[in-house]
Design a protein around this nucleic acid. Structure first.
Lengths: 339, 339
DNA sequence: ATGAAAGCGCTAACAT
DNA sequence: ATGTTAGCGCTTTCAT
């Protein structure tokens, strides 16, 4: 039986109201009495009952994180960052798995909504208008998604992929393939946009394949089609797809990077574990989780509803490992011959 | 402003008590009135306020899952399974990250304890006696850990690794290396135990290396030492370590499985993504998460405290992929020569 | 600056 | 079978 506010009040020789104030509005109580209260609370190991507090304040002290698939490694770092930031602010974190399904996701938001003050919605599968007309409570922060009127934090996909294209161009690649992600994915559209602009700028050719599901198996299946394009380098929607490509290429005996350069996106831990280690665009994933929670916390302040919903764009960097190199001479020769 | 129980009562023309009973103890109310209440509730979109309910019942409707490291892939499937089962029972799931630190883990249990009815503690880093003397509330279920008096669910490590040893023996390996995990890990001790018994049974030699941290980099670092042992096959504490070994071997130009067979443990998704795909002992990870929550739910029933704390052992299977094969002729020749 | 008292929304005795 | 009522532990007026 944990100590209640009454026990603390009795021990400190004050009323319960004073105890409450000492904890939630320190300035409204005399330094001296507050100290007495704090001592009593500490001695009793008192912790305010959150349910009781929430009943009055209407706040739960919880936030939720919803991902389309808890099995996706991209999400793990996000969760880690979110969890860390939430804990600093003394918030607890609920997680749930939308199972890649818009209906389930919406149900989850409703169910979870009762028990949290706000939700970080990662790579939502919801349609824009559904997203736009969801209840104002709980407060929503979108990750890697932009919807008018909703605060969100996104990773600079277009800029990141441009870094990769320039890297490839410098190595001498003039024909690149892109294995596209889900058509309805905001991130995918951004990457494609960056890709088009940047390949044009460096004078390289771009051929796209897909869309495919953002998974290992999709990458493996796409590899053959990549080969058919005659591209000397391939960029994948994300690392999972890139690793799938890598795996299939190994099976086919196509050497990476000698015969084909491969670039991923995200820089999940897996990227460094495969052979050859993957060159990839690093998204600050854990930071993204932190920033999203930060934005949520900010949004939870009184009067935040007036302020416009901000969009925060996080920078990406290129991590060059061993899956990219200059195009093979044989390919170059072929190209010259056909010219 | 969501509808309260009073609104529902008014609309259905009954008292709040009847509404409460209709929802929590259907049999105690007449079929007819209950139907009226349910209709009224539905029309108002009424959902009981959990905080208010919890204030009385002393239950939160939440459960917690604590892992040593949210970044460890093993844990993701566990979380997924746990989350799914919890949702079925209308429980919400809190997650937290112990940061591989016993002190942090204990603090987390205390902090989280106030807001959940029970906690699934995954691969706890806590000392046995700390674990044994923790408060009875919240209810704890241990995953991959056994402590007297605490319910737990474990994976059959010893049996699983024995499957792997037999597989290796059948291929003709007579000298195997084991890259051991953390000395204080219960799973590691189990694997070692199974390994000793089983290598003896099949007449193979065993040389152990480590202990090492259960991570990719540790595996990479251990690879050189594995080579020195002259073993023709290596079993790793888990897949992460095995993949590290694989990576370093590729760097060294040692061909797998031709020159060295490699076996992992867990069968995380990564195992199927590397080249060559990893032969590994598959632990039913997602199931483990489900079963742990199941056990927790069971433990939460009234009167469960009387029943003895059960230990559930989940079976493991061997997944043969392409990282194992018969020892190379050259090695065999060497062995014969020295005989 | 502090205390008394009124609830927040709900469940569980206790009545009827 | 249903209604009345007393809190659960806390915050927040409103007094003092």
């Amino acid at each position: 039986m944990p100590a209640s506010i009454h026990a603390v009040a009795a021990r400190a020789g004050v009323s319960v109201a004073t105890v409450s104030r000492s904890l939630t509005a320190p300035r409204t109580v005399r330094e001296n009495t507050r100290a007495r209260v704090l001592v009593a609370a500490a001695e009793l190991g008192y912790e305010p009952n959150r349910a009781a507090r929430g009943l009055i304040t209407g706040r739960t002290g919880n936030i939720g994180v919803i991902a389309p698939d808890l099995g996706n490694p991209y999400f793990h770092a996000v969760l880690k960052g979110a969890q860390a930031r939430a804990r600093e602010a003394d918030y607890a974190v609920f997680v749930a798995d939308g199972q890649e399904d818009a209906g389930e996701e919406e149900a989850l938001i409703r169910a979870m909504g009762k028990q949290v003050d706000g939700i970080v919605l990662c790579s939502s599968r919801l349609a824009p208008d559904t997203l736009a007309r969801l209840d104002p409570t709980p407060t929503l922060v979108l990750l890697n998604r932009r919807v008018p009127g909703r605060p969100s934090v996104v990773v600079d996909s277009a800029g990141g992929i441009c870094l990769a294209v320039r890297h490839l161009a410098e190595l001498g690649h003039v024909r690149c393939a892109f294995v596209a992600g889900p058509r309805r994915s905001w991130s995918n559209r951004e990457r494609l946009r960056g890709l088009r602009a940047c390949t044009r700028a460096v004078g390289a050719e771009l051929v796209t394949i897909g869309p495919v599901a953002p998974q290992f198996t999709s990458g493996a299946a796409a590899a053959d089609r990549v080969l058919e394009t005659g591209a000397t380098a391939v960029l994948a929607y994300n690392d999972l797809v890139a690793v799938g490509v890598l795996s299939r290429l190994a099976e086919l005996g196509v050497r990476v990077p000698d015969e084909l350069s491969v670039v991923g996106f995200d820089d999940i831990p897996l990227a460094a574990m495969v052979t050859p280690p993957l060159t990839t665009v690093a998204a600050p994933t854990e930071l993204a989780g932190r920033v999203a929670v930060e934005a949520l916390l900010d949004r939870l302040q009184d009067g935040a509803a007036q302020r416009p919903a901000a969009v925060q764009r996080l920078p990406t960097t290129l991590v060059v490992r061993s899956s990219t190199a200059a195009p093979a001479l044989t390919r170059t020769t072929t190209a010259l011959r056909s010219a």
